[in-house]
Design a protein around this nucleic acid. Structure first.
Lengths: 138, 138
DNA sequence: AATAAGTCTATAAATTTTGTAGGTTTTGTA
DNA sequence: TACAAAACCTACAAAATTTATAGACTTATT
């Protein structure tokens, strides 16, 4: 399951996407809208900024705004940033690969093969679908 | 990611599947083979038994054995039993459905739609692939 | 009777996730 | 130029979940 952090990130991105024409948006505005703790959301927005999705402005009249085009924010990138691996096993993760401790050799692990398929099918969707698609749905 | 519990369950099932002709197998034998704590594995095997996958025999010469045909143990059932929901959002889970707290109405939630697709593609694989497939791979 | 195994319930330890505190920096504006 | 508003940053705390352990109980075999 996606963590709250990731869900909140999607809410924030969606909100900022919808209000792109309105300049900088206060953390407060988003946190109130979705009932997210201000401070928690602060951390999340900061991560999204560091990842290059958002821009920000300090001081009075400041806030956050989307700097990437929504078509260039695949859902997979947001999930990986906040939640980590998308794969169901570490030995199958493209971005966070680790061998499974208990497995002697993953070449002959039956689970490994299935989970590669699951990963690939999942990624097909999560890499193709972007924030733009979310915005269009709502 | 799958929990250790689930991974251990798959290891145990695979081991029991491979040694189906050898009667009851000791917890100890499996726990040593994969380096799993005896007591932890105990709990897992008990759950698998209660779910109808395994049988057991107490006392000397006792142990666990597979009672279901491996073709009738889809991976999805094992995951759901030990790990819970397969879906990435509660509002999209077939077996553990819950509405998302922050969502006003999930009908117009863009994430919801995508996650239904991810769930369906994942389930296509995890419901079709069974313990039998794992055994054949190894 | 003794021993070997699984059964059961409760609890503890470790880890991860979620949330909070409080000071720092930047910027607009009076 | 001083003040206030807002993001920035680091560290910590609380809560929840996962992983692991303890120990007494039951059942079967010899």
């Amino acid at each position: 399951m996606l963590s709250k952090k990731t869900k909140y990130a999607f809410h924030a991105l969606t909100y900022l996407g919808k209000h792109r024409d309105q300049g900088a948006i206060l953390i407060q505005e988003i946190s109130e809208k979705y009932g997210i703790s201000h401070k928690f959301l602060e951390n999340i927005l900061l991560e999204l900024k560091k990842a290059g999705f958002l821009g920000s402005k300090k001081g009075k009249g400041g806030g956050y705004y989307l700097i990437k085009d929504p078509t260039e924010i695949p859902l997979s990138r947001v999930i990986r940033l906040l939640d980590g691996p998308i794969a169901l096993l570490p030995c199958v993760s493209l971005n966070y690969y680790e061998p499974c401790e208990e497995c002697e050799n993953q070449e002959q692990c039956g689970l490994n093969k299935v989970m590669i398929r699951v990963r690939d099918e999942t990624l097909k969707i999560l890499e193709m679908k972007t924030l733009q698609d979310i915005l269009e749905e709502e």
